[in-house]
Computed example of a mutant assay.
Amino acid sequence: MTVLRRAWDADRTLRGYQYKARQLRFAVLSALLAGEPTLARRMTTGAVPPLLDADRLRVYLLRCPPTDRDPITRAYQDPSGYHGRDLIVQCPAFKEHLIGLIADDEEEVDGSSRQALGRGEALRRLVRDNPHYALGISDPHPLGATAEACSQATHALAVARSTPTRIAPHDGQSPLAGLLPRQQALIWARTLLRPLDALPKTTTDITRLTMAMPRSAVARLINISRNTITAHLRRAGRALDLDLDDVRARAAVNLALALTSTCAGPEPETHNPTPTLDDLLQTDPAGAWAQAFLRPLPAHHRRTLQTWIDANADAQDAARRIGISRNTVRTHLRTAEALLGRDLLTHGTGIHDIVHALRITADLAA
């Protein structure tokens, strides 16, 4: 009986340790997603993950059955609760996702440098050995840009699901926000978002999150109800004078948020009228981006995409407008995901680029 009690106590202690390690890894991920690597170091004083000493990282987003996530995480875990130079974190928003934060620094081997693969190669091997897995891989990013790396990995995962290898790196295409005239774009973005400054920070943070993921995922991520998420969004929508249930309004807000996060600095001084979004999207770089972005898409799929956007991303409504079945609409959208490298149906994180690209090309045609 004493032996059994000791075994039970040891098992309980181990489960408690695994739970705490999982929570700590998620805390580090949360700080990095907020662009705060220094905060991540402060939270882990005495046991700083080696990842936080890296200059850059890649995000490996693994799609697998939810029941496989914990065994995978524990298989590569070291005694400190981390994963060597990397971190593997169970995504709290999407139960089928495992997030690998893989250090992307070079290391010295026999006097020459080579790229350290870390756990990235192990995740690739898992996908090769399991036909139900898929893997999206971001470009290298500084630690403070982990959120952008996660977005890239999400889009890459949408492509990976339709490729024979089920592994896809990000396509490397420059984001629209980086191609717009910097000063004018920043004036527009800050003017649009300024009403959010008067709202509670919780409302602003929730608004940012819901531009990048579905409301149900945000609710799971921060452990509040969907009704509370909806209430915060209504408050933000009233302040912005926008309907945040409309896909075009969300695309505009998402672009403004991207601009203000990448173009830090003082408020630009200007005596000219505030530019509109149309002014920004009618520039030559934006036109070139949109044409290159949509070029892989056949004309009939492009028409389906346009109708889908006009129907506020409602596949049933789009099918009725076109006169085809809802399944055919979804098939066209799946094809568009693979050709454009954007997630449209699983979590919808790529819809903003679609909205802007179709808007720009429609203006060019007009």
Rank of each mutant, 00 (worst) to 15 (best):
M1H: 11
M1F: 05
L4P: 09
R6W: 11
T13N: 11
G16F: 10
Y17W: 15
Y17H: 11
Q18V: 11
Y19C: 09
K20I: 14
F26K: 14
L33G: 01
T38D: 15
L57A: 06
P65F: 07
P65N: 09
Y76I: 14
D78H: 06
I88A: 02
A103T: 07
D105K: 09
E106V: 02
S112Y: 10
R114L: 14
R114I: 12
Q115A: 11
N130Y: 08
H132Q: 15
G144T: 13
A145S: 13
A147L: 13
A147F: 10
Q152A: 04
S162I: 01
P164S: 09
A177V: 07
W188D: 09
R190I: 06
T191Q: 11
P200H: 01
R208D: 08
L209P: 02
A212M: 13
L221G: 00
R226F: 00
T230M: 06
L242F: 02
D246T: 04
V253W: 03
L257S: 05
L259D: 02
A264L: 14
P268C: 05
T274Y: 08
T276F: 03
D278T: 14
L281K: 05
G287R: 10
G287W: 06
L297A: 06
H301Y: 09
H301E: 15
A313L: 15
N327V: 12
L333S: 04
L333Y: 03
G341E: 02
L344S: 09
G348D: 02
H352Y: 04
A362N: 13
L364M: 14
